[in-house]
């Protein structure tokens, strides 16, 4: 608690934005296709703006948008549901407050989460897939 408080004070003093980051272990994913199964469900996790897939490390990292009020428990539950829907057993999910990165490099596996916004079911489907 003291460490988090110190971090928040330090971040505020540097004028940096603090965001919520969740790191989840993945079970049973051995190929890019496995991450696809999860990626198409990530949009259901509220407030998540960026997602990072690490194949070798069996890890999923999600950054929430700045100012998100989602609680750790809500985030853990939503991530576990997204992984379950993908057909894989969810691993441990850790939630932290971190300083917002200046970039999310695609080379390191970062992808912006696509959120369907249309009312039409077909258009929503199209937005998720293409």
């Amino acid at each position: 608690m003291m460490r988090l408080l110190a971090f928040l004070i330090a971040a505020a003093s540097l004028n940096a934005e603090v965001i919520t980051r969740a790191t989840a272990g993945v079970n049973g994913i051995t190929s890019p296709r496995g991450f696809f199964n999860i990626s198409v469900n990530i949009y259901r996790v509220p407030d998540v703006e960026w997602v990072k897939f690490d194949l070798e490390a069996n890890r999923l990292t999600l950054d929430c948008k700045p100012g998100s009020s989602i609680t750790g428990d809500e985030l853990r539950a939503a991530i576990r549901d997204a992984m379950t829907l993908g057909g894989f057993k969810p691993g441990e999910v850790k939630v932290d407050k971190v300083e917002q990165p200046s970039t999310h490099p695609p080379k390191l596996g970062w992808r912006k989460v696509k959120r369907p916004t249309a009312k039409s079911a077909f258009t929503r489907w199209f937005q998720i897939n293409f």
């Binding site: 190929s31 890019p32 991450f35 990072k52 897939f53 690490d54 194949l55 070798e56 490390a57 080379k107 390191l108 596996g109």
Partner: peptide, 16 residues
């Protein structure tokens, strides 16, 4: 057998 990348990067999702 997945032979590429020879050394799987610690981060990211490479083409395999």
């Amino acid at each position: 057998y997945k032979f590429w990348p020879f050394h799987m990067p610690a981060e990211g999702l490479p083409h395999v």
